[in-house]
Design a binder for these strands. Sequence first.
DNA 1: GCCCAGGTGTTTC
DNA 2: GAAACACATGGG
Length: 216
Amino acid sequence: MSLSSLLLWIFNRFFSAYGPQHWWPGDTQIEIIVGAVLTQNTSWINVEKAIANLKRAGVLSVELLYQLPVEDIASLIRPAGYYNVKARRLKNLVSKLADIQTDIEDMCVEELRVELLSVNGIGKETADSIILYAFGKPIFVVDGYTKRIFSRLGIVSTRDNYDVVQDVFMSNLPRDVALYNEYHALVVHHAKNVCLKRNPKCNTCVIREVCKHGKV
DNA sequence: GCCCAGGTGTTTC
DNA sequence: GAAACACATGGG
């Protein structure tokens, strides 16, 4: 089986088993963008509390976050952890967004990615999450879960860096926003519920036929 | 009490 | 360059 066919087969197994994930959780573009920063090395449950605080304070917009003192943002996002670091990152990001706002829809994926990566505190995963889930442009999001699952399958190596892993998916799958959206969300679901770090539930895994862990 | 979470930047060898 | 470290809350 070709790599392309294998990646699609895995996607179909995940989708059949888990169904549509309706990502990204969040009603507005800025909520998705803020969530992408807040979830850095942080569980989503804590991010939800922080976003609820921002909503309650009525500051969940590019303009208002731009105006709000960094100390006030830090105080509101406290439940998400790293609140001083993340408050600064959010300020940096909304500043950049205000700068490029009128050009974003006309930018290609590569141009937008360069702009986002130029912001201190926005790395590859956060940038790609924003491009895919907030702006609806086709780029495959890689995270720790993706590396864990697909290295167990032998498709990537644990040594491979972000760009190498991303290229495996983007060179072997159609450039399709809906596919990339659902695939990454399904990977996260699978990692959280089945392919756990310490004790994976390989006996019930829907891709055990192709996973080294699942082979008896 | 310990481990972990949808990372990133800086410092250090 | 890569490895170690800082950043911090809250759930299991």
